[in-house]
């Protein structure tokens, strides 16, 4: 089994390297011809993200995924999600609002969290009418991260989640500090009236 994991990991590693080369080719073309290939670059990064997520899901299935927790500036995390998603959402006439009220460094797995939030914002963007909001705040001695939209909300609760939601739930629970674990909560309503994705980390 370890061998299969190695094969998968090295294949994904190579694919991501090639995607990086593809993206750099687009960057060259952009500056050479003065064009905007943002959507193509977005598709490349989304593909790479999907590959990583698949590997993470596989590792989680084998109980072989350890978190890599580093002190992370929460506002920087939000900024990176905004950087990755804002352009794409704007193309669909959707505004991405960021409201970060968590000013301290927080111990969390930065890259997995970035992926979870990117995925949540992507999902919200698919159903939103005009606005998606990503917010961060301190709550109950932990960190509360929330993605909400002004769409119709989840059709059923709990929603029949895809890989992304299942992953978010498991990864939240893996985050532990002072004997408390993180959790994911999905509901409808809130100030924007649509679906609401709430992640609490200890």
């Amino acid at each position: 089994m370890q061998k299969l994991l190695d094969i998968l990991a090295s294949g994904i590693h190579d694919a991501k390297n090639q995607l990086f080369q593809a993206e750099s080719t687009l960057i060259e073309a952009e500056s050479k011809h003065g064009i905007d290939l943002g959507e193509a670059r977005y598709a490349i990064e989304a593909a790479a993200q999907r590959l990583s997520r698949t590997l993470t899901a596989y590792r989680l299935g084998r109980h072989d995924q350890a978190l890599a927790v580093v002190p992370t500036v929460v506002c920087d995390l939000c900024d990176e999600v905004a950087l990755a998603q804002r352009h794409h959402l704007a193309a669909a006439q959707i505004r991405l609002e960021i409201d970060c009220q968590a000013f301290d460094e927080w111990p969390l797995d930065r890259d997995l969290l970035t992926d979870i939030l990117n995925n949540a914002v992507q999902n919200a963007g698919r159903f939103a009418k005009s606005c998606v909001r990503l917010s961060a705040a301190m709550d109950d001695g932990g960190l509360l991260l929330r993605v909400e939209d002004d769409g119709p909300g989840y059709a059923e609760l709990p929603p029949a989640g895809g890989t992304g939601l299942k992953l978010a739930k498991t990864l939240a629970a893996l985050h532990a500090r002072k004997e408390r674990h993180g959790h994911l909560h999905l509901d409808n309503g809130g100030p924007l009236g649509g679906a609401r994705f709430t992640l609490w980390l200890p």
Binding site: D14, K16, F20, I27, E45, L55, L83, R110, D111
Partner: peptide
Amino acid sequence: GEQSYEQVVSAVELVPDDYIIKPFSPEK
């Protein structure tokens, strides 16, 4: 290009200023 380095960086005492995962945009 892979996640194994994150495991290293989250554990060790001697760390780089930062690390970034491929692919990434110039903006990032």
